[in-house]
Amino acid sequence: MKLSTKQKQFLKGLAHSLKPVVQLGANGLTEGVVAEIENALNHHELIKVKVPSDDREEKALIMDAIVRETNAAKLQVIGHTLVIYRPSEEKKIQLPK
């Protein structure tokens, strides 16, 4: 999914006040966690996922896997928090052109 810079900035602004909806536990990225992220994306479209990992490479791999598995757009990473967006069928968020 390709988003323009204007659309990304708009979504980042909306995401600013959000709290992480999904937080990975000690088991890391499991099928259950991916399913929960899918449900959250279908319901909210724009979510934050908390990936607590001290290893930068491992954290980056996990975040890339989340984006790949969910077919979502990665908007930004701040510390341990990943912000992703995927439009649902109802199109709850109106993106600027």
Rank of each mutant, 00 (worst) to 15 (best):
K6P: 01
L46G: 00
L75C: 09
K12G: 00
L18Q: 12
I93E: 01
V49C: 12
H44R: 07
S88D: 04
I47E: 06
Q9G: 02
G32L: 14
N71I: 03
A26N: 13
T30Y: 15
L75V: 06
E57R: 09
H80A: 07
E57P: 04
D54G: 10
R56F: 15
T70W: 12
Q9D: 07
G32T: 11
Q94D: 09
L61H: 11
L29W: 15
E45I: 07
L75G: 01
E89D: 05
K92N: 01
T5E: 10
L29N: 08
A73Y: 01
K91R: 09
T5L: 06
K2W: 13
A40N: 11
Y85L: 01
V33H: 14
K91E: 08
V34R: 05
R86Y: 07
V22W: 02
E90D: 06
P20H: 11
A72R: 05
I93R: 01
E36W: 09
K8I: 03
L95D: 00
D54V: 00
K19Y: 14
Q94H: 12
K59W: 02
A60S: 07
G79H: 05
G13H: 13
K2D: 09
R56T: 13
Q7F: 02
V49W: 14
K12L: 11
L14H: 10
L46P: 00
K2G: 08
T70D: 07
L41Y: 11
E89F: 06
E38M: 14
